[in-house]
Write a protein that binds this DNA or RNA. Structure first.
Lengths: 227, 227, 227, 227
DNA sequence: CATGAATGAGACTTCATTCAT
DNA sequence: TATGAATGAAGTCTCATTCAT
């Protein structure tokens, strides 16, 4: 829920969330096996998104995938495991969306903030269902919780560094520390988007939401500029 | 998680969450019955906070309350119901904490914002365990979700009204709509506090957190003033 | 299988096998509960003896007892647990059968040997089914194995002490150590009886078996006397 | 467990347990097929001895053999079948060890008893793991049980004949029947050895064990002679 | 009202066996 | 022959809920 990237980009680092496999019987070898595994993952996503994590039974996933009950266990150990893999895939995509390498060093801070918020809104639009699930599972599953927390912490840290750089250049306020500010702004963007897009809080259009977030963000940091 | 009250107060209205009784099997009449019901509610809070909602069994609550397993059903229909009642009680307290009737019409907007944030931090400190539970249950229980959403919406609406008033007085920016702004600021305060206090994100002291939230809040709205 | 008592008696010590309860939810309190528990124990014995330990399903025991499936788990944690309790009960009875306190100090060693063998044969006659089961389960369940081994070791030790006493009195051979001799003689009696009574090896009558065991036993130890 | 051979030898008869092949799906014809079959048998022995019969899965055997899961069924019908074949192989070896054709007709009975016990101890030392498995499986598998019983009966019968011969020659007691005596003595030797070698009952050295068994045996039969 | 035993639907998981490639 | 994915019967265990006392 709280992946939010703004400002100067980060480059090489990859999100640590994408564990490759750790399935029960190593990786499936045959092409057929890969296909079945994929069928199960796709089915799981459909069922999770439709019924929620807790209401989903292994049997539902197997049925949706069109395989026998036991086949599930050929590829995954548990509901949590398949969920974790699914989330990691989504996180990978989210991350790739946000990384726009070689990105504009010629943008103003305000423009960078706007670009970040715009990307974030887009990503959440795309993956809203899985992100909502992540939020659900994180409240009671420690592993998923750690994954979600790590993502938030990484996002906040990235923003903190941007703020710090702006402070050094004299274009962001220096009366407050960069750490708490980054935390507060990540919360503003991610939680607002969460309620806005996923819970149907109300119906602003995208541009209104992006503009509001960006302007509040910029004013809060006392960035110089246009509006 | 997103109860947040700032600005001019509202007065009479009660939080719509606090259904006074709504017990399933008639309200208990005898004094003894009341005591047993109370024992169960207290036990439920202890067990929920200790084990989480999902891990809690009716049997655990009964045991903690020192009553027979079946007695639970004399007073409550389900785990969700006792949880809802418990949450309503807490919400009632939260609400009462925030309502400081006859409160300062002589405060500046910035001071009102600070007072609101300070109260919010205090309330979250007090009720963190239940608020975290609320967050957990809201992700999969529709009834609890509605309760949580209602609280957020009410908070946001209250803030929106304050902002609107400030806009009319010319002391808050008018280039953005009050509705989205209120939503974003509620998110900032409530979600930041959530991570800060409940998930141990980092360890700012109270005053740093309150000051950061208040200054960002005021700057975002372009309130006039001191700092 | 290897409970075998001969010679001078032991007095106070109790077999350590009879753990009183260790059921899941402590002991059942009501009389009804006791009755149901008893029904389950009796049913388990019937089914175990009829089908063997491995072939027995919890459902079979419940059905035989005439209770619902889940009721089993009110009283026992697992098939192994109910079996262990059953075995302990039998062992308790076996032990009580063998302890004949205040027993004949006026008997000759040979007569004591005979009396021990006769008691042993009688006990095995009575409990043959459970003893066979014990033998079965001991081969793969560590806890039951330990129980069975303990019983054998205690029996052998009791006999060893008798032999040692006889050696000191000069009425048993002294060219061999009492320990190995006791082990060999326990094996002779218990294993012979096992095959004879339980596996239908052949069909000696009781008196032939007892006389053969007793005479071989006495001659092996070079006890003085009659025959 | 109760294979025990003493005294005059029997000559031609083969242990009836050693069915040469009896594979399910035709005997493998190709050399490659023979090798795969052998790999599976060796793997099975390793896994059975390591994990016990019940804990062993077909998949474990295949993995240990380095062949695909399904390949197992090319050669064997079931876990029990491969086990039976394995046991038959061991029994064949045990039998061959004990048959020392043309063996000493110039030995005294006591020496023959000693030689038998010594051979028995040696064989059990060598095959203890498989013999223990045999004991395990015999308690619940009828086919294996029959195999084990047959071995015991054959051993006892061989000894009975020796005793009978000695009785006729006037060098063994005649007040007891040869049948029960043979059974008791087989039990003494085999069961003592079982506990001694396999269950770590105590730690006599080989010579003490052999001497104890032999002396008790000889005295029990009232054989004439040295000690 | 209180008790706590009894219920049974429902979910999870294992693994021997089959079979298309 | 060899492969290993797919199958599904069978068993285990949990726990919310009911109900006779």
């Amino acid at each position: 829920m709280n992946v939010h990237v703004t400002g100067e980009q980060v480059g090489e680092e990859r999100l640590s969330t994408a564990q490759p496999s750790s399935s029960p019987n190593q990786a499936p070898i045959s092409a057929k096996g890969h296909r079945t595994r994929r069928k199960l993952l796709d089915a799981a996503q459909i069922v999770f998104e439709r019924d929620g994590f807790l209401n989903t039974k292994i049997a539902d996933i197997s049925r949706e995938a069109g395989v026998a009950h036991g086949t599930f266990y050929t590829y995954f150990d548990s509901k949590t495991e398949i969920f974790r893999i699914l989330v990691a895939e989504v996180m990978e995509m989210v991350y790739n969306t946000q990384i726009t390498p070689g990105d504009g060093s010629d943008l103003t801070p305000r423009q960078k903030v706007e670009r970040g918020n715009r990307q974030w809104v887009k990503v959440v639009h795309q993956h809203r269902a899985m992100l909502r699930l992540l939020e659900e599972v994180a409240t009671f599953d420690d592993e998923i919780f750690a994954m979600r927390l790590r993502v938030r912490v990484e996002s906040a840290e990235r923003i903190r560094k941007s703020i710090e750089r702006w402070q050094q250049k004299g274009i962001a306020r220096t009366d407050l520390e960069s750490g708490p500010m980054a935390g507060a702004l990540v919360s503003m963007v991610s939680n607002f988007t969460y309620f806005w897009l996923m819970l149907g809080e109300s119906d602003y259009d995208d541009e209104t939401a992006i503009r509001t977030l960006t302007e509040l963000y910029a004013s809060a940091l006392q960035l110089p500029g246009d509006p």
